[in-house]
Amino acid sequence: MPGARAAGLSHYIDHQLSSRDNLLILRYLRVKPPFDGFYSSALTAFEQAVRKRYNKNPGELAQGEMSEFITSIMQKNPEGWAKSGEDAPPAPFFYFVLRSDAIDVTYGTMAAFDSLDIPYMAHIEPDHAWESRRE
């Protein structure tokens, strides 16, 4: 999701995971809290599957390689994913969750609505605490 890093995706997830009142979309998706293990196991699986396929760390992938890899995890676990640990969620599910988190943080704020030319029309304006920590 272009813009998600700048919008503070990692801060958003960290902030929510450390909050008593966690508001991640994962709440809706039949995953038992706490959710820390979901993200850490999936990121480990992601990294290992990338290494298996490209012999690189995820951060070293060219844009084309990253797109190819993301496309490959939409439907099934890529090679190397299963060996990363039995607790890792299925790759397509992790893709859906992280994509949703990215949309939340990139497009779920008043400033983002404005960038899309959508009138926010708040009754009560939100205070998104993670925004102050974004990069």
Binding site: M1, P2, G3, I25, Y28, S67, I70, M74, Y95, F96, R99, S100, I103, D104, Y107, G108, A112, F113, L116, I118
Partner: peptide
């Protein structure tokens, strides 16, 4: 409809990512 969340339009077509999603 809003951009984000389970019923937001951003979630309706999960196959899109990257610049195409933007």
């Amino acid at each position: 409809v809003k951009p984000n969340d389970l019923l937001g339009f951003g979630g309706t077509n999960p196959a899109l990512f990257g610049p195409k999603l933007t």
